[in-house]
């Protein structure tokens, strides 16, 4: 997913769309397994390191949805067709902040925490990992509002602070594993079994 979105950001759209069609045609439905279903939230300006995503999956989780800059955030809002192209592009930026609020924009039309809870419920994610880029002030300021709502909704979550360079895989995995263990232990075993079937 990351690769698909990231490449779409830099490639010629027509070329990318053609390739994307091939990818979509090649997809088959996969039966649901017992991996813990997670939502990734955050990373507002750049892509998380691929090793980080791999480390999360290695712990036994599957990412079912996200609001990352190089993920859903990018494809969440279309450019309105017709009219002045430049205005349409500008409109798309404004619209995107309403459909998927970004804390770098001081806007009040919609609230990120509402949107987050809505999509978590829609995807059936069992937990959320908040990926916070170190020194991202808007995210640091907004995070407690997300946390408050997730706690109110009883959605387990984990905050991981990331850096541009370097990734302490071992520490990350310990934290992710602890989250998964917490999700496992608070989920009655029979429910897990039902999911498996």
């Amino acid at each position: 997913m990351q690769a698909l979105v990231k490449s779409s950001m830099v490639m010629d759209k027509e070329e990318h769309s053609a390739l994307l069609r091939q990818v979509v045609d090649g997809l088959a439905e996969v039966p649901r397994d017992d991996r813990v279903r997670l939502h990734l939230s955050g990373h507002l300006c750049h892509a998380p390191r691929p090793e980080l995503l791999a480390a999360i999956e290695e712990c036994g989780a599957i990412v079912v949805d996200d609001d990352l800059f190089t993920g859903t955030r990018y494809i969440t809002t279309d450019v309105p067709e017709g009219g002045d192209p430049v205005e349409a592009l500008a409109q798309r930026y404004l619209d995107r902040d309403a459909t998927l609020p970004c804390p770098t924009r001081v806007k009040h039309e919609s609230d990120w925490e509402d949107e987050l809870v809505r999509v978590v419920e829609a995807s059936g994610a069992q937990g959320v990992i908040v990926l916070m880029v170190r020194f991202c002030e808007p995210h640091m300021l907004y995070y407690p509002e997300l946390r408050k709502r997730l706690n109110e909704q009883g959605i387990p979550h984990l905050l991981l602070e990331t850096e541009h360079e370097g990734l302490p895989v071992e520490t990350v995995q310990t934290r992710v594993e602890a989250l998964l263990e917490r999700i496992h232990r608070s989920t009655p075993p029979h429910r897990t079994l039902e999911v498996t079937r």
């Binding site: 017992d34 991996r35 813990v36 290695e58 712990c59 036994g60 170190r134 850096e163 370097g166 302490p168 895989v169 071992e170 520490t171 594993e177 998964l180 496992h184 075993p189």
Partner: peptide, 21 residues
């Protein structure tokens, strides 16, 4: 004895280089 959700194998845990920020 439960299904190993984490799917871990017993491998070498490398000491991570830690940058003390």
């Amino acid at each position: 004895r439960a299904a190993v959700g984490a799917g871990e194998t017993t491998t070498d845990a490398r000491e991570p280089a830690r940058s003390c920020n």
